[in-house]
Design a protein around this nucleic acid. Structure first.
Lengths: 259, 259
DNA sequence: GTCGCCTGTTACCGACTGTTACGCATTGTT
DNA sequence: AACAATGCGTAACAGTCGGTAACAGGCGAC
């Protein structure tokens, strides 16, 4: 399975929109399942800075100077990088609990843009503070390492998908991964509210928007999903999994089921 | 430029095959340019374990229990993962100074296989030791973070290439990245001794071996490189760069230059 | 030496994806 | 209300890449 993320399978059901309150210590802000939650929990003896973003605001820009990394507490964020010719390429789609900005430590500048797709609340964690705390709190260091490591893993899974799956397989894998992440964070795992356009999804999967569109249509025709613009309902998880593992057969099997 | 790695541009020319001696403190074993060098240098007050590998030996296997990560001191290592259907997919190609095994921290088990392509010498760095040292040596912690972060960056660059470049562009980008890494570690940046088969290269780039072969042949015909099995000489770096940036034009331009 | 195996090269064909173009629905503006 | 802008779906066409196959060269086993 390429879709397994390194996230613990413990499910956090409760969804606390704590960003609607005052800025507060983040100890109880996140569920267990989110990689950023433990880190926030381990930094207890100083107030964490909250940043509020509205749709379209940037959390950081590529090349901007690094001083903090961020734990997304509520909302949705898209990260992308812009090539020399002005083409936007989506790098990731992030929900609450995700950590952003880790890739900036090496160079001291952020490696991509991060834009809010919705109203967002973000915890800003100053890197120097982490280092300072780390010297007397090995658990915090371990937790940071785990987050790094998980990031590498999931990037690598995505890479393997990109390089080995045909268009349908990639789209199916994308949906399954999203479902798993939504589920582990207390959202519905079958009714997905995409916040991305076809274009943005495509640029993350190395496909054109028409191809994404076609894949969605095909899946709907095969009864695997229902599509209503950006509202997607997964109806046959195993079928989608089949589409990832054996893309060719899945097509055939669906066809004869329809006949 | 997607090919820029986060490695410092300082070049370490001297190549000390220190693995031929007795196991020793690693302080002087590696050049500045390698991401693993600083880490090895910062762990000074205990002897680092060396592991010798001969061609075909595994440094670690997917699923194996994690206790140490590794700094490659000499030789070449290929990492790959095996899918359910038995297909091998190359994840990375590593030279001296590279760090291996970082992705294992999250789950406690290694995420891929690592096999020696040559006689290798590897420094094994027990993770617990790092944590222990980290509490009184913040620089070590920072250095580890830098390595993690650089890993994420380079994975992401590769991802962008995979999802956006056509076959020729990927192969050209692969050659340029290799050249840059060889150069930064004291090898020739233009005469590359590939240790990978076409198949292995292809599985890293998401291409079939025939496609890799065809790309090499095309490049050779355009005068960009010379190919003699796994011995490749880069003859026109700018031309290769052009192939990455504007794959279509590069073909045309080469054709009319030949005419 | 010969055989068999592995790696690599090249050619031909077909499938898949990108390209282009058009139509439709929604949204927000004049 | 008319209009433009944006996102989305569909279809025809073209280009690229993979699948298959045949062949050459290196190498070890016998």
């Amino acid at each position: 399975m390429h879709m397994e993320s390194a996230i613990s399978p413990r499910r956090g059901i409760a969804f606390n929109p704590c960003w609607s309150g005052k800025a507060r210590n983040a100890t109880h802000a996140l569920t267990d399942a989110a990689p950023g939650s433990n880190i926030a929990r381990l930094i207890t003896d100083f107030p964490i800075t909250h940043r509020r973003l509205k749709m379209g605001d940037f959390l950081f820009r590529a090349g901007g100077e690094f001083s903090s990394f961020y734990v997304l507490n509520a909302g949705f964020i898209r990260t992308f990088s812009v090539s020399e010719d002005g083409q936007e390429r989506t790098v990731g789609f992030h929900l609450r609990g995700d950590i952003l900005g880790l890739e900036a430590i090496a160079t001291g500048t952020y490696g991509c843009d991060a834009v809010a797709l919705d109203v967002c609340d973000v915890l800003a964690i100053p890197y120097d503070t982490v280092i300072e705390h780390g010297s007397r709190n090995p658990d915090l260091v371990r937790e940071i390492h785990r987050a790094f490591s998980a990031e590498i893993r999931s990037d690598r899974d995505l890479m393997l998908n990109l390089s080995n799956l045909p268009a349908d397989g990639r789209v199916a894998a994308f949906l399954l991964e999203l479902s798993q992440r939504f589920g582990s964070r207390g959202f519905s795992a079958t009714e997905l509210q995409l916040r991305l356009t076809r274009q943005e999804i495509g640029s993350m999967l190395g496909l054109k928007l028409e191809t994404v569109s076609r894949a969605f249509s095909r899946f709907a025709k095969l009864g695997l999903i229902s599509v209503d613009l950006r509202q997607i309902v997964l109806r046959d998880i195993d079928g989608l999994r089949e589409m990832v593992d054996h893309p060719a057969d899945a097509e055939l099997r669906g066809a004869l089921r329809a006949a």
